[in-house]
Write a protein that binds this DNA or RNA. Structure first.
Lengths: 222, 222
DNA sequence: CGGTGTATTTTGTGATCACAGTGTGTCATG
DNA sequence: CATGACACACTGTGATCACAAAATACACCG
């Protein structure tokens, strides 16, 4: 009924490229401003430029990549205003998704989230930025999947995608030593079934994680 | 700084196709389930299939079009659950955008919105569904542009895009005779600078306009 | 006359090519 | 040694083609 969303069997060439690039961007494997070429992408996925172009076009539409006026492709370098705006969108959507998932969150789900959270803590200890981002997003997505709101989750993933390279740059320079921030509060609110506490925990988790961005100007322009 | 968003000069072939199709979908010129072909699109824009494919890929990524497993392209036929979900996303984003625009909304803006609203009323009187949708969206967008939140507005336009064909189908069958619903409340709240009233007016305007959807089942499946 | 098989047309996919614009590197010159 | 222009390599764009899958039309058989 809703093709192209969660159907694993399909494996057209452009879809492989799309998924591969998408994960690379979302997980922060590419730093902001990284230049990409269609021929290079095609070569690394062993396809011609045609599927590479379509994948890039699609990712550009989602804000995962930017294209200069001359068509040059690169990962986005976000301004501070943009970062704050994307953070506030997360702060708007994620509490809502969490709240919708709350009534459907049984113990098995909470247990799975705890185990993901432990993997996340290990990634922090190992200073593995990419794995940290990956498990962090998986922690959140595992919860939101229960909200049964695919469109809202889709929008949120778009936001994550746009923040991917920036988050990587962030976590690379302020080397976290502490464990993930407010995830424990989230889990407690889930167990308690406390909607207000859950919304608050999500909001602070999101804003806290991205507030440290607007510090070093460097290339403040606008 | 953010190419491909609001820069009129660019005119590559695939961009013309993209913009053209996008407007057709968003304004409800195409009913839900309308089938499209790449060659047909290319012919109607006088280009080959290549730019048509890229435009379709992009619109598919934004949810404006759907592709079957075999690659067939069509405008989306939304389930009732999906419609309600999209409406609730509108109800989440639009009050926020309106609130952000409130402090920057001077009298000239309100005047412009009033004139758009009059055009909207004329469209209602003329039973012109497409023009009704167009002016209605323009009314909202004129306000939200003042919010200076391009990412949030971009997400919202994605939602509008997904609802385009469905809104057309809706307004086609329940022939409005009354003027636009809660736009007057919105304008009054803007003039009064009343944030709470503005948020409420937006929320009701959005949900009211789409609540009448889940009535006729016809093809209730899930 | 209805259903089923096949044949034909239509469709999306991916590769390849020619082309124009851009950026970069280099070499000559002041 | 610095600065300028020029040339070459590179990049994205759009058109075209061969191909396979799908949908449609059609004819044949029960």
């Amino acid at each position: 009924m809703r093709p192209g969303f969660s159907d694993p069997p399909v494996q057209s060439a452009h879809d492989r490229v799309y998924r591969g690039l998408r994960l690379q961007v979302m997980h922060g494997e590419l730093l902001p401003g990284t230049a990409l070429t269609l021929r290079g992408i095609g070569k690394s996925f062993d396809v011609s430029m045609t599927p590479a172009r379509e994948a890039v076009r699609r990712l550009t539409a989602e804000g995962a990549l930017t294209m200069s006026a001359s068509g040059r492709v690169a990962t986005p370098e976000l301004s501070n205003e943009r970062i704050e705006e994307l953070a506030s969108i997360r702060a708007l959507l994620e509490p809502e998704l969490a709240s919708r998932a709350l009534r459907r969150a049984h113990l098995a789900l909470i247990g799975r989230m705890e185990s993901i959270n432990e993997a996340n803590a290990r990634a922090v200890h190992r200073q593995d930025a990419v794995e940290y981002i990956r498990t962090n997003l998986e922690f959140h997505r595992t919860l939101y999947l229960r909200a049964q709101s695919p469109a809202m989750l889709g929008l949120l993933e778009t936001v994550w995608l746009q923040l991917g390279p920036t988050m990587r740059a962030l976590y690379a320079r302020l080397r976290r030593t502490a464990a993930p921030p407010h995830h424990r509060l989230i889990l407690e609110a889930l167990r308690a079934g406390d909607d207000a506490a859950l919304r608050l925990a999500l909001r602070t988790d999101v804003t806290q994680g991205l507030r440290h961005l607007a510090v070093y100007p460097g290339e403040a322009r606008a």
